[in-house]
Simulated scan of single mutants.
Amino acid sequence: MTKQERVDFVINTLNQLYPSIPIPLDHKDPYTLLIAVLLSAQCTDVRVNQITPLLFAKADNPFDMIKLSIEEIREIIRPCGLSPMKSKGIYGLSHILIDQHDGQVPQTYEALEALPAVGHKTAAVVMSQAFGFPAFPVDTHIHRLMYRWNLTNGKNVVQTEKDAKRLFPEQIWNDLHLQMIWYGREYSPARGWDLEKDIITRTIGRASVLKAHPQYLK
Rank of each mutant, 00 (worst) to 15 (best):
L38H: 09
P22I: 03
F133N: 15
T152M: 08
I35R: 00
Q50C: 03
V158G: 12
R78E: 05
Y31I: 08
D60K: 12
F56R: 08
M85D: 01
L25K: 14
H101I: 12
V158T: 02
L115M: 09
M146G: 15
E161Y: 00
I51S: 02
F131E: 14
A111F: 05
E110A: 11
M127A: 14
K86N: 13
G89Q: 02
M65D: 05
H120C: 05
P134W: 11
C43G: 11
G119D: 02
S87D: 11
I51A: 05
V138C: 10
G154V: 02
M85C: 01
K86D: 11
T152C: 13
N61M: 04
L55K: 00
I23T: 13
P137V: 07
I77K: 00
S83G: 01
A36V: 08
L38F: 12
N15L: 00
H101Y: 15
F131Q: 10
Q159L: 01
A124E: 03
I35C: 07
S87E: 02
Y31G: 05
R78L: 04
N49F: 14
V118K: 05
H27T: 12
H120W: 01
H95D: 05
D64K: 13
L112I: 09
K67Q: 15
G119F: 05
F136C: 10
I70M: 11
T122C: 07
E71P: 01
V158A: 13
G119Y: 03
K88T: 02
T44C: 08
S40P: 15
L38K: 07
H27G: 02
R78P: 00
T152P: 10
S20V: 10
N153D: 15
T152Q: 11
P22A: 07
E110Y: 06
I98N: 07
N15D: 15
K162N: 06
G132H: 14
P53G: 06
Q129Y: 05
D64L: 10
D102G: 14
T160D: 04
A135V: 06
A135Q: 14
G132T: 07
E110G: 10
K28R: 13
K155Y: 09
C80E: 02
H27M: 12
S83L: 00
A130I: 14
K155A: 08
F56Y: 09
S128F: 09
M127I: 13
A57W: 00
D45R: 15
V157M: 07
I96P: 03
N15E: 15
M85P: 00
K155G: 03
D139F: 03
I66Q: 03
L112H: 04
L93Y: 08
P134T: 08
C43S: 13
P62L: 04
P79K: 04
G103S: 06
Q100Y: 09
T122I: 00
Q159N: 12
I98E: 01
Y31S: 01
V46N: 12
L54F: 07
A57L: 01
R74Q: 13
E72T: 04
Q50F: 02
Q50T: 15
A36H: 10
P79I: 02
P79N: 05
D29Y: 04
L115C: 11
I70D: 03
T122D: 10
